Amino acid sequence: MTPLQFAEHQPDYLRTLTQSGKSAHTVAAYQRDLVQLCQLLPPDGELTRAQFIAALKKLSQQNLHPRSLARKLSAWRQYSDYLVDKGLWPHNPISSLKAPKPPERLPKAVDQETLNRLLDNKPDDETLQIRDHAIFELMYGSGLRLSEVHSLNLDSLLLDEGWVSVWGKGNKQRQIPLGRTAVAAIRAYLPQRQAAGGETALFTNRLGRRLGQRQIQNRLKAWAQRQGSPQHLSPHMMRHSYASHLLQASGDIRAVQELLGHSNLSSTQIYTKLDFDHLAKVYDSTHPRAKRQK
């Protein structure tokens, strides 16, 4: 098939998309991706897999996000399948062509000094602020997921022993140590805890029912703003800060894996990339072979 033949069937293909119920926005996106492809292909000769790869490389050199490249490649592949189904092309040369992987997204972490300064601001005597302070100390002090904080019950705590029992992903239970400040914050909260009849949740709302996950998120966001946080805070960021700070201080990735409840070490290894600049500075300032003569 020549590039001209490849392009001439696009109007028919786009009509089939419309007839199949695709939105006008989706059809327009397919059209743009196919037009762009035809502009990147050579003007004549038989189309080959190598030419499609070259087109994909040209787009990647334009600093397009890998997800955009994957979407475009999907549109090309589906149109090529259409041509094969219609008997217009003997086979699809890009059926197994893969788009480049998106860059690994590193979790965001708040620096230790900022986070400790925020948490050191003691709450007022208002019940909800005391409850929130206990939640936030627990998030950072024990690295719990939002869902894990939400699901905690009174019997999850062993305050005298300094442990909390958590049910994580895959319904797996793990024991996590409680920090001194988290224990103190929880002890301050418990006498003021409101509970409806039979409610076992550790953290409850004004009605005495289990505090919802969205409520926890919103309370953390509002608290951070009131405290003058330089950045937005989320439960996810609190957990990531716990992990990165712990790994930075200990260097024990296996222990951090257990504390986070990660089944695979690869999930924990992402934190080793977070503090590379910090580790590089430590190396430069301490290792005798790193110091350069001036």
Rank of each mutant, 00 (worst) to 15 (best):
F6V: 02
Q10T: 07
R15L: 10
T16I: 06
G21Q: 03
T26I: 06
R32V: 06
R32I: 04
Q39N: 12
L41N: 11
Q61N: 12
R67D: 11
S74P: 07
W76V: 06
R77V: 12
S80R: 02
D85F: 09
W89T: 05
P90K: 09
H91L: 05
I94R: 03
P102L: 10
P103G: 08
A109T: 13
A109I: 10
T114N: 05
N116T: 00
L119D: 07
N121D: 05
D125T: 13
T127M: 15
A134M: 05
E137C: 09
Y140A: 09
Y140K: 09
G141C: 12
S147K: 14
H150E: 15
N153C: 09
N153W: 00
S156I: 08
L157D: 00
L157F: 10
L159K: 03
S165W: 13
N171C: 07
I176R: 01
T181Q: 11
A182V: 00
A182I: 02
V183H: 03
A185S: 15
Y189T: 05
Q192A: 02
Q194T: 13
A195P: 08
G198V: 08
E199L: 00
L202Q: 05
R209M: 12
I216G: 05
N218L: 14
R219E: 11
A222H: 14
W223M: 03
H232F: 10
S234T: 15
Y242S: 02
A243H: 05
L246V: 11
A249I: 06
S250N: 13
A255S: 15
H262N: 11
S263C: 12
L265F: 12
T268F: 00
T272N: 01
K273W: 08
K273M: 05
H278M: 09
H278I: 08
A280Y: 09
H287G: 03
P288G: 05
